[in-house]
Design a protein around this nucleic acid. Sequence first.
DNA 1: TATTGTTATACTCTATAACTATA
DNA 2: TATAGTTATAGAGTATAACAATA
Lengths: 180, 180
Amino acid sequence: MPETSTANAMRRPRGPRKKDTNDGLLGDGATGSGPSEAPEVDTSYLETLLGYNARRAALTVIALFLRRMAPYDLRPVDFSVLTVVAHNPGVTSRQICAALDILPPNLVGMVKALHKRGLIERQPHPTDRRAQGLHLTLAGQRLHIQAQKTATDLEQEATQALSAAELQTLTDLLRKVYRR
Amino acid sequence: MPETSTANAMRRPRGPRKKDTNDGLLGDGATGSGPSEAPEVDTSYLETLLGYNARRAALTVIALFLRRMAPYDLRPVDFSVLTVVAHNPGVTSRQICAALDILPPNLVGMVKALHKRGLIERQPHPTDRRAQGLHLTLAGQRLHIQAQKTATDLEQEATQALSAAELQTLTDLLRKVYRR
DNA sequence: TATTGTTATACTCTATAACTATA
DNA sequence: TATAGTTATAGAGTATAACAATA
């Protein structure tokens, strides 16, 4: 999707609007410019780096995630929060922040949005009046079941080139990298 | 690193300043709050997802990258651009954008900054007067050699938990995920 | 004194529109 | 008409400071 544009009768001020998917580290080699094309840029060294490959693979999976989760209007972080609440009823914001490495100020809006959508509820914490226990509503539970199924299916779709054993090996090796 | 703060004699307006490293998808489980701590949040399902693990691993490697590359003042994207120019003398901005999946408007500032630092030069393109061929300066070549060596060493450091064979397997499997 | 949740806000990253010169 | 490079800028993501209520 090129950035070129055809002349427009009326000149609007300038500025963006939507969003899409892109990055600033990887290489896709196919931003699609036109019919004939064969620049042949050598990126072989970068392709030996684990960080480069891990990031490209992650973004590929995440791009598919975004497409498949679009019907539920869930970004990866939203799904992660929903999942943590689903599997840890009564969990506090502070715990979610620690588990998902989200800074508290940045979680506030997400929780607020999920609450506004009727997916999660806040209940008074049993022992700490500062905190609030988070729970899924029935609608939240229904959505989460669908979303988790989609995430699991998506897993297979994203790794069609891999056997089940290879996927298991890949997951294990990735964990070895980030596990302290 | 908690976000709490001790009362300050004089109330300043409010606002941020520096930067650090954080994210909004993964889980580190150690934002460090204090001495006693054992919230025990279950994230086991998320840890079965390839996207989650790939992203965590990528961020772990990138965090190390940022530390090791700090002396050279190179972000991953700067290193990638420098590497592509080093391995493809005379490459155009358009080609870099395609190879690294950077949008042209976002590359402009990077190239400008690298040029201002005396690391890259622009030369008139031999056949297309619209384009400019990018080349490393001598200083750019020197810096790139150091940076590439650092990146290669960093690879080993980031994968201490893996054997050489495992690292090779991991890289191969990651490529299988994003290679179309 | 320290922590939970919050508001305000700034810096970075990513994305779109539109322009100029050239093809 | 289409492309290379560019400017301007919007919007998302990520970071810090500081506060009130509570521990």
